[in-house]
Design a protein around this nucleic acid. Structure first.
Length: 276
DNA sequence: AGACAGGGGAGTG
DNA sequence: CACTCCCCTGTC
């Protein structure tokens, strides 16, 4: 039987959180979201603080959206910064998710030098190639490819991932020996170093995996949006090397840098969005 | 219609 | 550090 039910989800905005660039496998149908995670389809709908769901358990969602994280404490700590205060007031229910590392890593390799509609197409294409069909409530999709299945570079190019196909093969090979989950117990620096050893994984993708799946809330992924926003707000509009931006974030936001990044990123992107 | 940038990274100099 | 290329797609 399909688990179904509802849970209380205070300080949580489902729509904003899903749209904030952490996950790509979801679609909106009316007031419902169909989110795919691994081999699950989850139907979600939020009304106020009530989160209704189908296709998983309540505890699964609590972990996925980190609903037991004290968001108010984090927000309070960051609100000393005038820029962040505005971003937090604008998107008060934006939370960081806790994804499965393999799916997260593959997804963000696909994301490099790309855009959201294309990223979604590419990931969905990989699922169609190497996953199996899954269904829920009239919605159909495919499960996420298991580690070890991303071997055929040419086939993956066929779904439009381009030069990223060779990186997917490399990460697929490495995942056999590298236990991603075990990185959780290392220091931030060591875990990041392990990830960037992989071909196709630079600092940005590594920080995304560390932040969105491995629980390193000090990770501060710097993409072009964050770079522009940081230069505008904290470097007087001056072009600034990535290294200096990362250092500033670590000094200025500390252990909550990841949340700062997420609020800044979403705020900056919504100000002049170019896609759906 | 051709150039160009788009939620990076690797390889050079 | 500052380049260039990498694939592909939508846009101007």
């Amino acid at each position: 039987m399909l688990p179904a039910g509802r849970i209380s989800a205070p300080d949580f905005d489902l729509r904003t959180t899903l749209r904030s660039g952490q996950v790509f496998r979801f679609d909106e149908r009316g007031d419902c979201f169909y989110l795919r995670v691994g081999d699950k389809i989850i139907r979600l709908r939020q009304e106020g603080e009530r989160l209704e769901f189908l296709g998983c358990s309540g505890s699964f969602l609590r972990k996925l959206f980190q609903l037991d994280e004290d968001l108010e404490a984090v927000q309070k700590a960051l609100s000393g910064d005038a820029v962040l205060r505005v971003a937090i007031e604008t998107y008060p229910g934006l939370r960081l998710m806790r994804q499965e590392p393999w799916e997260c890593l593959v997804s963000f390799i696909c994301s490099q030098a790309s855009n959201i509609p294309r990223i979604k197409r590419n990931i969905e294409g990989l699922c169609r190639l190497y996953g199996h069909p899954i269904h829920l409530d009239g919605f159909s999709s495919y499960s996420f490819p298991e580690p070890g299945t991303l071997r055929d570079e040419q086939a993956m190019r066929g779904v439009g991932v381009g030069f990223r196909a060779k990186y997917l093969v490399a990460v697929n090979d490495a995942a056999a020996r590298l236990d991603l989950d075990s990185l959780r117990h290392k220091s931030y620096g060591e875990a990041k170093a392990s990830l960037t050893e992989l071909s196709g994984v630079g600092e940005k993708v590594a920080d995304c995996v560390l932040l969105f799946s491995l629980g390193f809330s000090q990770a501060f992924p710097v993409d072009v949006w964050i770079k522009r926003a940081m230069e505008e707000y904290y470097f007087r509009g001056r072009k600034t090397p990535l290294r200096d931006i990362r250092q500033f974030a670590a000094d200025h936001f500390g252990p909550n840098a990841g949340y700062a990044q997420q609020y800044l990123f979403h705020y900056a992107r919504m100000r002049n969005r170019t896609d759906a």
